[in-house]
Design a protein around this nucleic acid. Structure first.
Lengths: 131, 131
DNA sequence: ATGCTTGCAAACAGTTTGCATCTAA
DNA sequence: TTAGATGCAAACTGTTTGCAAGCAT
């Protein structure tokens, strides 16, 4: 299998690179559309999966759909339960936990992911107004 | 709003109670179907969400769909990347992490969930055979 | 020239919803 | 009696796939 550098593939990778806010596949699609009016959603999805497989990007499984990220190291995320915003969490990766769970379950653990849930500052403010 | 104890609602709750393996909505639907040939998928989904809202059950966001659980305390899970099995992880809930992330981000953190990924013992064996 | 990639549309999985009917309280 | 609950089918969201045509190598 040969990797080909198509214009579309480059556009998708660049779109992920140009964002720091964990975009959804749809976000990337819209960004790429701004550069190429004819690219299809299928191509964007295929390339996101392809780049994920190549470990050029990673994906975060958030409620409401996958989010993509340039960061390659495992790290936790915070999701706003109101607006859906996703940011990196300032929490260290606990590698020892993987070993402990492996020992306790018999599973082979490759990694773990942690998602914190809460309200982002903006949504905290707008909820105060409402009440 | 009044909560009504319909036969269907009871069947759904009982079905979750009778399983210890984090069933999907479809699993529950099939179990309930065994007792009532005419119950609809919509009713099962509605009742799962309803019971979740009442905090009678919890749901785990696993790849491939939500999994339901009788346990009400926050706890980590292990997902087999090959067969999709979900089990409870023998890992303590780190409440201090919530406070740390809240302090570091300005978010109000309500909780976090951790999902370990790896291969269950059965899939480890079958992968060895294949190679 | 070869075969990986694309665009399109259709298929798909999981879940939710509109609506007329039914039923628990 | 009546508001909440059901069953059915259709809608919906996010994502994947079959296929003929296109393009990187």
């Amino acid at each position: 299998m040969q990797r080909r550098n198509t214009r579309q593939r480059t556009l998708v990778l660049d779109a992920v690179r140009n964002r720091r806010d964990h975009p959804t596949a749809e976000d990337i699609y819209l960004d790429v559309r701004a550069h190429d009016e004819h690219i299809s959603r299928a191509t964007v999805y295929r390339n996101l999966r392809f780049l994920e497989g190549e470990r050029a990007i990673t994906c975060v499984k958030a409620p409401g759909g996958d989010r993509f990220d340039l960061r390659l190291d495992s790290h936790a995320h915070v999701v706003c339960t109101s607006c859906g915003a996703v940011i990196d969490a300032p929490a260290p990766y606990d590698a020892a936990a993987d070993a402990n769970v492996a020992a306790g379950t018999g599973y082979t653990i490759t990694s773990h992911s942690t998602i914190f849930e809460g309200l982002c500052p903006a949504c905290q403010r707008s909820q105060q107004k409402t009440r």
